[in-house]
Write a protein that binds this DNA or RNA. Structure first.
Lengths: 226, 226
DNA sequence: ACCTGAACACCGTTCAAGT
DNA sequence: ACCTGAACACCGTTCAAGT
């Protein structure tokens, strides 16, 4: 087999650099090999240039990762139409968490470098709308959105580096073996501390957060006119 | 000035490697220069050996960071004696968060590689005891401890990389400038979304979590015999 | 103006070879 | 058994010099 020669016009060997092109290439590397490989050098190699060239379009590695996350947020989809506001809220949050769980290390960097792109704004708008639909006062709803998103993001981030579960096993063993003499509550409740599927815990956590948000007023300085 | 010669016996030039010595040196580097400098190579240099030697005592960099965190947890101190269980609970959590806020990047790695040392166990015992004192059922209290610690850790972790606040400013601007036509809730509540001191938000979050934990039963599979 | 080669200053981890 | 020199395979970021 011989490859047909291509005209220079039809397929330039090296497309011009753009921010979108860089982010798209980063997403491709993320999907294929994980965030650890989404480095400036690797990306430059993929785009057939030197790493220095990327700094014209991206401030640094953190900003690159935030742009990648906003891109993936676009795959979460709109709010469900059926069910009570509580059910819909929990479903949106669960879908967001599930997406992040596919790339836990991205969740980890999202905790530090929050995305601020259009997909992230849309998610905040949706969550805020559902809490207001539930009759939750503005100020509580606003702070509540932050709390809900932080829990989802942190839960996904905890799974980063899960390929070496040595740390988690160490905690479990320490809890099971804690002596009742010095740690009576742990000894009595070790089972409960370690129980529950990740799904059950996530669902309980969202219900817990929503119940708390409904009932806890923000301090006066934090309130807005209604 | 001439340095007095030291006897070889009095001050050996190179102390023997031990796990404790390695962790202590790591804590010293953390205090002086931050977690970014707590690397295997830097640590080896400080201990006058090659990086390969450290792998006899520490599995990898993550495990080293977890050991450092448990060490710092020892500086948090015991539960306060005065006040209602709610007040004492909030005070313990605030002190834990304040300690982590001195080393946000350590909080970030704690989210992934949980510590399992004696100081961490003590903290869990304290929190569990306070929730039980408040009459919260065992299973809820156990899952609640996790939720409270996760919030504290994640909140501190968010401040990692704060020296370059570009990302946070970008979110704030995006929220303030969101058009009412497409994002009515954000436009109406931008003030509330961005309001509140970090202290006020942290305190509200703990109260919210506690209120939720009090009222939300865990699913039956997660429950233990009382 | 835009782009980049080359350099600076580092990383984690492994392993063959030494004592 | 314990320890380590040297190597392997990478990093982020800057900047002088090119087009």
């Amino acid at each position: 087999m011989t490859a047909a020669p291509r005209s220079r016009r039809e397929r330039p060997a090296k497309p011009a650099l753009t921010r979108e092109g860089i982010v798209a290439a980063a997403v491709a590397i993320l999907r294929a090999e994980g965030l650890r490989k989404v480095t400036m050098r690797r990306l430059a190699q993929e785009l057939d240039t030197g790493p220095a060239s990327l700094y014209v379009y991206v401030r640094n590695t953190d900003e690159l990762h935030a742009a990648v996350l906003d891109e993936l947020l676009g795959t979460v989809g709109p709010a469900p139409a059926e069910g009570s506001w509580r059910e819909r809220l929990e479903r949106v949050l669960t879908r967001y968490t599930a997406m992040l769980l596919e790339h836990p290390s991205l969740a980890r960097s999202a905790l530090t470098a929050r995305p601020s792109g259009p997909h992230y704004l849309r998610l905040i708008e949706t969550l805020l709308g559902l809490l207001r639909e539930g009759g939750i006062p503005r100020a509580q709803a606003a702070w509540g959105v932050d709390l809900l998103l932080q829990h989802a993001t942190a839960t996904a981030a905890e799974h980063a580096g899960e390929e070496s579960p040595a740390a988690w096993e160490a905690v479990a063993r320490a809890l099971r073996e804690a002596p009742a003499a010095t740690h009576p509550h742990i000894a009595a409740d070790a089972g409960a501390l370690l129980s529950g599927t990740p799904e059950a815990r996530l669902s309980w956590a969202f219900q817990t957060l929503i119940a708390g948000i409904e009932r806890t007023a923000v301090p006066t300085e934090g309130q807005e006119a209604p």
